[in-house]
Design a protein around this nucleic acid. Sequence first.
RNA 1: CGAGGAAAACAGACAGCCGCGUGGGCAGGCCGAAAGGCCGUCCAUGAGGAAAGUCCGGGCUCCACAGGGCAAGGAUAACGGGUAACGCCCGCCGAAGGCGACUUCAGGAAAAGUGCAACAGAGAUAUACCGCCUCCCCCGUUACAAAAUGGGGCCCCCGCAAAAACGCAGUUUUUGUGGGGAGAGGAGGCACAGCGAAAUGAGUGAACCCUGCCGCUUGCGGCGGGGUGAAGGAUAUGGAGCUUGUGCCGACGAGGUAAGGAUGGAAAGGUGCGGUAAGAGCGCACCCGACGGCUCGAGAGUGUCCGUCGCUGUAAACUCUAUCCGGAGCAACACCGGUAUGGGAGCACACAGGCUGGCCCGGCCGCUCCCGGGGUGGCUGGAGCGCGUUGGCAACAGCGCGCCUAGAUAGAUGGCUGUCAAAUACAGAACCCGGCUUACAGUUUUGCUCGCAAU
RNA 2: AGGGGUGUCGCCAAAUGGUAAGGCACGGGACUUUGACUCCCGCAUCGUUGGUUCGAUUCCAGCCACCCCUG
Length: 114
Amino acid sequence: MKAAVTLKQNYEFRRLYQKGASAVGGGMVLYCRKNRLGHNRLGLTASVKLGGAVQRNRARRRLREVYRLNSPRLRQGWDMILVARGRTLTAPWGELNDTFLRLCRKLGLLEGKP
RNA sequence: CGAGGAAAACAGACAGCCGCGUGGGCAGGCCGAAAGGCCGUCCAUGAGGAAAGUCCGGGCUCCACAGGGCAAGGAUAACGGGUAACGCCCGCCGAAGGCGACUUCAGGAAAAGUGCAACAGAGAUAUACCGCCUCCCCCGUUACAAAAUGGGGCCCCCGCAAAAACGCAGUUUUUGUGGGGAGAGGAGGCACAGCGAAAUGAGUGAACCCUGCCGCUUGCGGCGGGGUGAAGGAUAUGGAGCUUGUGCCGACGAGGUAAGGAUGGAAAGGUGCGGUAAGAGCGCACCCGACGGCUCGAGAGUGUCCGUCGCUGUAAACUCUAUCCGGAGCAACACCGGUAUGGGAGCACACAGGCUGGCCCGGCCGCUCCCGGGGUGGCUGGAGCGCGUUGGCAACAGCGCGCCUAGAUAGAUGGCUGUCAAAUACAGAACCCGGCUUACAGUUUUGCUCGCAAU
RNA sequence: AGGGGUGUCGCCAAAUGGUAAGGCACGGGACUUUGACUCCCGCAUCGUUGGUUCGAUUCCAGCCACCCCUG
């Protein structure tokens, strides 16, 4: 993941949590908000409640992979945050992928369809 | 073959597609004056045995020189070695456990001092309740005395004297003395159990008394306030007492003794013989333990040796002895750009206060709060890893040859498919090493011990 | 990275190495026609695993969980 397309600062996360639109699905939470950069940025969150470092790393990697494989279908110019839940670790890959697409469709992030 | 114990090794592999970090290459593309940056492509490489917990020890960096003195605190604890060092490792001694291979041990000092040892038990750090023995006194018997032998030294009642306690009167207790009585078929006492009277008794509040307001039936009713407070009353408190039961002690003077006596974690070294009035390490033999000498060993220690002695346990209670310890941590620290001792607010102008983790000397600095704080280095070649060889029982050390094996900075290893019987154990580097502790599915190898069977 | 603290009944909590106080709650009983009040009785792996000790909630060590502080 390139440095220009990730969210790093704590105030950026706080701004999305407060002002962004959100959607909840099995295994993840998605926040999004429009930016003026013309490309997308992604933030990932895995809390201590998920488990040790191994579990948190695994949750982040699965969410990042979901975002990477589906990024050509997304509209540009949005900030997004994916928050890991307990089912992020245990859910099968197909279910995780479908959930991400369903949340994006709900928030109007997919290219082409209204 | 079964059971056990020790030491090591591994920690999914392979193939395909998409994707990530770092390093290097490219007569590739774009931006830029340049340095360089971005993209693309190829190659190499990319988490652990515990990376974890952060429990010890170091390296490294800074604290002015990391300095002097004193005190406190902390850590460790047989002995010898290894190591940069350690609380780690190896060997060995001792103790405990196991038939054994082997495992475990915070393993200095209790004879410097202080503290603690409930309950039980006669007695708990030294005692004398019983017992045993001697002596004294009284009584009986034989035959006056002497001597011998047997029994007793208690308890109850009455009188007298003295002392003490309760304010006096007076009462009680103790001691002495006189008389009488009971008593080994047991006076008297203790413990447990049973029965159990009086009395106390919370909250509750029948009834009565005083009083306020309202109603009309004018002395009754209703609603309130205050006081006295009956009966009853809990498996509660209490415990006078009993022709109650069961069990035990049970004759009490003076001295000696520490053999025996239901306890306890621990009872004054153990067994036997002698000895004695009875006894006792009082003496002897054997055994056990402590200390000193001698032998062996480098030492802790050891022993068919000699001498002295017989001492409770606890120091993960205080304490004593010996040894070691300055502090902070890569968010350390250094450099670049930069106004850089950043900006703002408040307090203060000195015998104050802060830092040098306690105090003194010495040294340094105005203090507190809020906001902001980019990049690079440190950053991985090291007390490194593998193989061989030499020394050593070993830990380990020396020499030779070969190898380079993560370095991120919101944090790189992921997703899908297929094959292998199955692989979803514990778990993610963050300055680096040496250990310890804890978690862990399973697989493999090499010695060793015990049992059974066969040869 | 460094430092500090706590864990005792369902809740709040005390305790010198020698039987684990107390209050609220809960269960049973007494009182009452019944309920309430009141009284009596009952109710604990002392976070966990080892060790020291005759004996551990207490002393020591290792784990587990939670909370707090500094940068």
